[in-house]
Amino acid sequence: MTIVAAFLVPGSPLPTLRPDNAPWAALVAGYKKAGRALAASKPDVLLIYSTQWIAVLDELWQTRARVAGVHVDENWYDYGDLPYDIPVDRALAEACVEGCRAIGIAAKGVDYDDFPIDSGTIVASGFLNAGAKVPIVIGANNLYHDFPTTAKIAAMAAQKIAAQNKRAAVIGIGGLSGTIFRNEIDLAADHVASEADDAWNRRMLGLFEKGSASEAERLSADYAKAARVDMGFKHFAWIMGALGGRFKGAEVHGYGPTYGAGAAVVEFKL
């Protein structure tokens, strides 16, 4: 089996920066459970897509052997810094650049010191890949790529993983409903912005739990529109592409708000 585990996780840095804030505790606990499940699957590489790594020209792939530094989130700088030091599986990343080109998608490797790594990649790696033991491959969120194109890129990446005989965990990093509070709130009273958003999120998570992969995929566009889902829910497209459109069920390890937006830690059953 090439893809040995799959997770959908939040990219908001808030649970990392304030883990003891009660409304975010479920996400922190969920992330910890997911981290243990990931370790148990013994992956050689993490295949990551984060909605917050934005590209507009090509599909970009990180090809620096090691990305390290201190990141400060452009919105949540008050709550502290995000240090990171993560190894990259260059051979696989370079294969993905070539693989994109072979399916007609312009692509480039990014191999620069101090390239800004996004908050989502850093917080997910921090929770899921403690000690940065497992190298990662990260593909960017090209704003001009739609849901099917994103899935196609992930499917290509899964083929490259198979060709290199590796075990990979696929990770889609991004939020659920996207309505955020636009005024300062009492953090301890954070909640999903509306009942409608909450209902949509739970409906989608319910489909995951039931293993209704194709229904979840079909509903994604409506969900994205109705609940302003982070980047059209393309982080789910990434997971679906890598899994060949199938999963048997899912465990929602945690669900909660991130300043009004919805977020969940989901482990898919393969």
Binding site: V56, E74, N75, D114, F115, P116, I180, N183, E184
Partner: peptide, 21 residues
Amino acid sequence: TQLGHHFLGVKKLSGKSVDPI
């Protein structure tokens, strides 16, 4: 920014800026 309008408020800022695009 999503939560209002923000102003740089540190007297000296420096570093290397790499354009993500």
